[in-house]
Design a protein around this nucleic acid. Structure first.
Lengths: 349, 349
DNA sequence: CTGAAAGCGCTAACAT
DNA sequence: ATGTTAGCGCTTTCAG
């Protein structure tokens, strides 16, 4: 009754149904051009044997694998898991599956992941590269004949198309908003300045400050609660304490928020706070936190879509084909006004 | 310079290196029993051709696929994405990859996902089943010869091993804690009462209330902000308003928290709040929220580990082999005391 | 409408 | 230490 070790094969089905393998193959591929009677007989055999086509054999035959690789730093990070969810929807709609691999921002793990996916002959690859100094990844990706799209971060000096949010514009908008509030001393706080996204945001902040004739101050000394407390304490004891803080990533925003609360430094009356990246309870904490929101779902969608569009236009050969280099416009971010920047509290959801 | 359409094959490498296919095979599988000189020559050929073994061919040869399927309702849900991350670590350590598929709690999508994974011949399957009434999934899983472990929720009346948190004990502990605070009128609020986890939590709540001689009240009318506001308003206008609220899932906890805030009903002085499931900013909002925390990482780890242990003990044939039925003890949950239940504010991280 | 047969790329006896 | 060869399960001409 129960199959023991092995799976039933197509030819077993054929034998049981008393037909040739070709016929069975036709049946499992839609059943066109098969006599209804034969069809029924084959289907019965399939049923009884619990037959399921072996994907590996199909792939070996030269078919597409109908798999897309997705390489990200972490799947527990809400940003990336949302991207994954969005990408998965598109991939699914194209009758394929997404293989998600994580790298923990380790370039070696990243290389391994790509390697593994290539061995699996994924039809396409979406990757949010950890910014390694060495161009190893770029070189590797340049050498393969599989379509690749980078997500969130580009690969320096490569022709690989990328789906990016407009980090520069987002930071500009945020900084300008703080300036419009009348704040002069605006401090920007961040970590991981080696990341492309962070660099762009810093650039947006600096240029906007400069344009307004204000002095840009970028601090990278907030790492955890301890360092944050130490730094903020120092900052607010100075003769010219900041009037606003612009935090460039989620964890920094939250850490700073907590420490300010603990130190009794009131937001926004004592200091305004604006964070890059929206997060779950940003509008539930008090005061609610004004943020720059990225079009996360869009990014996941677009990356996957770009991949499938590329499939259609060619055979997936593109490393040498420079015609697709039109870099797609960066996706626009949005300023979500809440209370921490000093805006009047408005009606809540 | 660049490969055009096709990938290099093993025999192309063999030809280029002037050796037989076996030798090349040996080289890519560790290079044992190969003359150093030959080895070098083959490696060079591999390099020049950009050769990467075709996983499909290996699989076809009968090898394990070194893939594990992971089927969950959503990858954007922090609970499941954390599980996935944890499981992935174990899977990775066993030199395999995790294929994550999501179902949106749709039983059809779930069946499809399992089907797809079976065609890919995954070596094992981890699944958090959506609780479909029909036993379709159970029957399907019972029929296949691939090791399966269910996660977070069991499949009714099946011998499939599962990794579960002790929802009953968690709810008992939480309810008892509220009772110990002296609250008599404790209302339990939830959704999705068809889920196993929720049912267990409700059971824990009810039995504990009963044991204390208190009346259990379970409400399922909080769906969104609107319904929550309506329901809570009614509740607190009554002659005997609740003294404590026990919310059984994250989104309910947050919704209730927001609405209470909006209505100006103070926590915990007016009403205490205790939620099932910890979440990111539960200790940053004011008051911080007391919760039952599940050992999420443990669950992901354990599920994957159980799978690999099963591989070792047999050939992966187990549907008929009842010897492994010892249901592993359910993983223990923890009560994280914060302010919303009425406990004295203590020092924060 | 159906069947026979040739591979897809790789591994693993079995030779040498 | 290395080469020869027979499949793994499927799709796909090419004939009937």
């Amino acid at each position: 009754m129960t199959k023991r070790t092995r799976h039933a094969t197509l030819s077993e089905v054929a034998k049981k149904a008393g037909v040739g393998t070709t016929t069975v193959s036709r049946v499992i591929n839609g059943g066109q051009r098969v006599d209804p009677k034969t069809l029924a007989r084959v289907q019965l055999a399939i049923e009884r044997l619990g037959y399921m086509p072996n994907q590996a054999a199909r792939i070996l035959k030269g078919d597409r694998t109908r798999t897309i690789g997705f390489v990200i730093p972490s799947i527990a990070d809400p940003f990336f898991s949302s991207c994954a969810e969005a990408a998965q929807a598109i991939v699914r709609a194209n009758d394929s599956v997404l293989i998600v691999l994580t790298t923990q921002n380790d370039p070696t793990a990243e290389l391994d992941a790509v390697n593994m996916l290539m061995r699996h002959r994924v039809d396409g690859l979406i990757i949010a590269p950890c910014n390694a100094e060495d161009g190893l990844l770029g070189r590797m990706l340049g050498r393969i004949s599989t379509p690749v799209v980078t997500l969130d971060r580009p690969i320096q000096g490569s022709a690989i198309p990328s789906i990016l949010a407009d980090n520069f514009a987002g930071a500009t908008m945020a900084t300008q908003h703080l300036i419009d509030h009348g704040y002069k001393r605006i401090v920007c706080m961040t970590r991981e300045t080696n990341l492309y996204t962070i660099q762009e945001r810093v650039r947006g902040y600096k240029e906007t400050m400069k344009a307004a004739g204000l002095k840009a101050v970028v601090s990278t000394s907030v790492e955890d609660h301890v360092s944050a407390e130490k730094y903020l304490l120092k900052l607010f004891k100075s003769a010219t304490p900041p009037q606003a803080l612009f935090t460039l990533k989620n964890s920094t925003t939250i850490t700073v928020f907590e420490v300010l609360q603990k130190l009794g430094i009131e937001i926004p009356s004592k200091v305004a706070l604006l964070g890059y990246d929206d997060f779950q309870l940003a509008d539930v904490v008090r005061p609610s936190i004004t943020v720059v929101r990225q079009p996360i779902e869009d990014m996941g969608h677009s990356a996957a879509e770009l991949l499938f569009k590329r499939f259609l236009s060619g055979d997936g050969i593109s490393s040498t084909d420079g015609s697709h280099n039109r870099r797609p416009a960066q996706l626009t971010t949005k300023l979500i006004l809440r209370d921490s920047c000093g805006c009047e509290p408005t009606s809540k959801s």
